[in-house]
């Protein structure tokens, strides 16, 4: 079970066709259908080779291309001049391509509007909220040294007698990673000190700490604090998961 990568380059079959048309400097209204069919299929092959997931729509279009191609190869039907001009088998495809192209251009224009608007800041936008989520207090990301400092404090606070119990319990970093991940789903903010409060042994504290470091490395969590030496807060690294969305007020 390998990973399937979704090819973002070509959003869909129409996109790929437009790309090929542009690349080969073809005339959209007069597409050499066998040439483009061949190239289209070659692209699908490469995508397959790279083990990219090919959306069903790509295959539907491949079939459509081959249908058009075969219709062009057939001699024109000997029919009474009822419909004076039999429609070019490519016509429907051309219409769709042009229609799609129109909206692609329109989308580009929207993108320009977006960029322009991003140059402008308003009162309390979503971004500012991110800077100071609760009550307008600013946070900064906690560095590794702050973490270690906090850690050593926890270690020092451990009651001595408990140290003898080490042998009894075993904690793995992996377990702790899972534990933290579970906790952080239900609680938006974990406090560093709280996390260690119920730790029963030095080994458990160490495992927890290593788990935090590992989760930071994996970009699953972020740590921050309001002020230097303040309690460290642990949060889910939501930025990685999903882009920030402006809150609807």
């Amino acid at each position: 079970m390998g990973y399937k990568i979704k090819l973002e380059l070509f959003e869909g079959p129409l996109d790929l066709l437009l790309f090929l048309i542009k690349k080969e400097e073809m005339d959209v209204t007069d597409i050499p259908i066998s040439q483009i069919t061949q190239q289209y299929l070659e692209y699908l092959e490469v995508m397959q080779l790279l083990d990219l997931e090919i959306a069903g729509e790509f295959l539907v279009m491949a079939a459509e291309l081959m249908r058009i191609k075969s219709r062009l190869l057939l001699p024109p039907e000997e029919q009474p001049a009822e419909e004076l001009e039999e429609e070019d088998p490519r016509a429907e495809l051309v219409r769709r391509l042009l229609e799609y192209q129109k909206f692609k251009e329109a989308a580009k224009r929207l993108g320009n509007f977006e960029s322009t608007r991003k140059e402008v800041f308003t009162r309390r936008t979503g971004e500012i909220l991110n800077l100071s989520e609760e009550g307008g207090e600013a946070y900064f990301e906690t560095g590794i040294f702050d973490l270690i400092t906090a850690f050593s404090k926890v270690i020092q606070r451990l009651p001595k007698k408990i140290l003898y119990e080490i042998v009894k319990d075993e904690f793995t970093v992996e377990e702790k990673i899972h534990e933290i991940l579970h906790l952080i789903v239900t609680e938006p903010v974990l406090y560093f000190s709280k996390l260690f409060e119920k730790a029963k042994s030095r080994l458990e504290v160490v495992a927890t700490f290593l788990a935090i470091l590992e989760l930071i490395r994996l970009q699953e969590i972020v740590v921050r604090q309001k002020a230097l030496f303040d309690d460290i807060e642990i949060l889910r690294n939501t930025e990685k998961v999903q882009p920030k969305v402006k809150e609807n007020s």
Partner: peptide, 16 residues
């Protein structure tokens, strides 16, 4: 945003 749109309506070349 229509570029070659009109051309299309006018002439879908009859000879493939």
């Amino acid at each position: 945003f229509v570029q070659q749109g009109e051309q299309l309506e006018a002439s879908l070349p009859e000879d493939s």
